[in-house]
Design a protein around this nucleic acid. Structure first.
Lengths: 241, 241
DNA sequence: ATAATTAACGTAAATATTACGCTTATAAAT
DNA sequence: ATTTATAAGCGTAATATTTACGTTAATTAT
């Protein structure tokens, strides 16, 4: 949800709301915005839109996402529907949550600012309208689950990234410290990382080698039925409160 | 989808379709029905309904499920939305797939027959209307994924079941032979099965002990963060074609 | 009795995970 | 120049889990 105004009481509305994740220097963030128009003027909300009669739900989500961040071709996936009859007091409105993973340096800062949107650390989110806080929780749960068996996290990192960066992303997602030696061993063993002849020195004197994700190799292994399950993520991570 | 007739071209319809799994003596089956009214009269279809303005999507699914099988309190979960603009040539209709797992001996046979519904082995499904075959594929993929880490399969077995039965269920879901000694060891190790002092002799002279699922213990372990991941299911099972 | 069949139990070998210790490269401080 | 501090990178032994497969048990039919 997060739209303009309603009219008829007897019409079924279909909307989509985007749970937009970003990863900023060790911190998992969410893009939300402060509504400048009624209803819920001044309140925080996810970014969403009604679905038009001649567009698919993902098109609608892509449309708002581009409108607000300037980004196209973003990783996005359906989360679930939010459909309780009275979730939106203004009208019967079913909303399809979609979670998106974006590379946080790529978005259009002017656009975001213009729309009153801003990045909030996941742990410091304000109250959001309607059931949007629930959507956010569900999205993190899904992100965690998906991350267990699919190297989806790469969507949140720049194209070139270091192993320590990758590790800190997983630590942010699971809210859990990981042993760096075992982490390195495990992720390299999948064989989908290409080591570059370049270092990133922004966080240490020694500098860490940059890697990129080998999409081709990944697809090849997926069709072979290889699993990317990471056992150490599975156990003992912090619950989502 | 799977409804009566449409009127306006400019209205967004919301429907739900149920992918109903059953497990019958080693074979995974699906409950579908032969439409006796237009549109698609005579064609096979999933069981579905429009969602009414004053009911949630799950209520709608529960409503049709009860209408056709007589069953209440069935395990059911949202799969995903099917929302491409032209998926239904009759109108703009978004359908939410819901998959349900039922104990195949419990349903009301007269009701099912009356509605032209019937159980088909998963591997021998006929062509279904619209995108229903895709829904079925997606549902199996989801069932497999979910089964990996949650003992969801019990929903498909009678309350009392034997270990060989449980194994054959997993073999049907993953289309893969499992070593019975290792299977037994693994599932018992979770500690959520209660051995009964009763045997089922329907499939062997020796007879196999009956077990029941310990829901309480299961919930307790889940809150403790125990995982029910079964590694041997993860690898090398048959792809869904 | 014996054979045939499914169920149940056990154990060794192969793999994978976990818990650490140690070295390396470099910039900043002395 | 040398030392120091720090993150990065590599390796290995201990532990746990999975896999492969041999054996025994209960029962009915012959």
């Amino acid at each position: 949800m997060s739209k303009d105004s309603y009219s008829s009481q007897d019409k079924m509305h279909l909307a989509t709301d985007c749970i937009i994740f970003g990863f900023d220097n060790g911190i998992l963030k969410l893009l939300i915005f402060k509504r400048s128009i009624a209803p819920y003027k001044g309140a925080f909300s996810l970014i969403g839109s009604f679905v038009k009669i001649n567009e698919s739900i993902d098109s609608a989500a892509e449309r708002v996402l581009e409108e607000i961040t300037g980004l196209k071709n973003v990783y996005m996936e359906e989360l679930k529907t939010y459909n309780s009859v009275h979730r939106d007091p203004g009208a019967r409105c079913v909303s399809v949550g979609q979670y998106a993973l974006i590379k946080i340096n790529d978005y259009d800062k002017d656009l975001v600012e213009k729309h009153n949107a801003m990045w909030y650390p996941f742990n410091e989110l304000p109250d959001l309208v309607l059931d949007h806080n629930q959507m956010v929780k569900d999205a993190l749960a899904r992100l965690r689950r998906k991350t267990r068996y699919q190297p989806i996290g790469f969507e949140l990192l720049p194209t070139k990234f270091t192993l320590p960066q990758l590790q800190s992303l997983y630590e942010a997602i699971f809210q859990k410290k990981i042993d760096s030696r075992n982490f390195r061993k495990k992720v390299l063993s999948f064989g989908v990382l290409i080591k570059l002849n370049e270092k990133d020195r922004s966080s240490s004197k020694k500098g860490a080698f940059l890697y990129k994700f080998d999409h081709e190799k990944y697809e090849e292994l997926v069709t072979k039925g290889i699993n990317f399950e990471v056992r150490s993520f599975i156990n003992n991570y912090e619950p989502i409160i």
